[in-house]
Amino acid sequence: MSLLASSLGKKYVMALSGLVLSIFVLGHMVGNLQVFGDPYLINAYGYKLQHLPYGLLWVVRLFLLACVVAHIWAAITLKIQNKKARPQDYEAKATVQASLASRTMIMSGLIILAFLIFHLLHYTVRAVPGHQYNHAIIANDGTEYPAEVPLVLHGKTKVDAYGDPLIVHNVHDMMIAGFSYPLISLFYIIGVYLLCMHLSHGVSSMFQSLGLRNEKWRYRLDKIAMVYGWVTFLGYASIPLGIWFGIVNASV
């Protein structure tokens, strides 16, 4: 494919995979903010995602993984080319207008990757030692919550087609237990901060890379990207902070 070999082709890969991932970031945030509501909300949401028909969960997961791989492949290939294009740097270095976010994309990106791997091991695979959350959910202070709970809304237990109570994974309490560790919460907040800084440059850049931008929209898109970055940061950071300040409490 000559398109993928070209510099612009790789930028399109960057932009399109970035578009998918940044929409996921917003959707994931909205989904997780349900932790502030009745425990039923996020537990039912988790149950629905886990039981999507036609194996859609894995379709979406593999699609997102493909986007992550494509995004990183394009980023690293482009970065190597960029380094080669200036074998000798200036003695006097100056930056006229490039933002900090734009100059640290590869660094923020790689730290986000490390964060992403931990995050998946922590809450999806549940394989971080001491954070398995499969049989029981144990918080920082030793409190133990059941890993699976019946789904209860307004005091009424939901039942399945056979009339048996619907047993779901206790997502709500798992989040509370997970964020009861200050170091984990701190790592999480730093991770989402870098992610949102990455987005503040990336979201406007993807329109530029695809050529969907003109004089009128140039400043608007820069503003939209900045707002996107801050909204997602505040949204995500509010979860560990809400748990830390006791706004969100365990259900069981």
Partner: peptide, 11 residues
């Protein structure tokens, strides 16, 4: 020619 790629710095 071996020029680098655009990363939208605006420099």
């Amino acid at each position: 020619a071996g020029f680098g790629n655009c990363t939208n710095y605006g420099e």
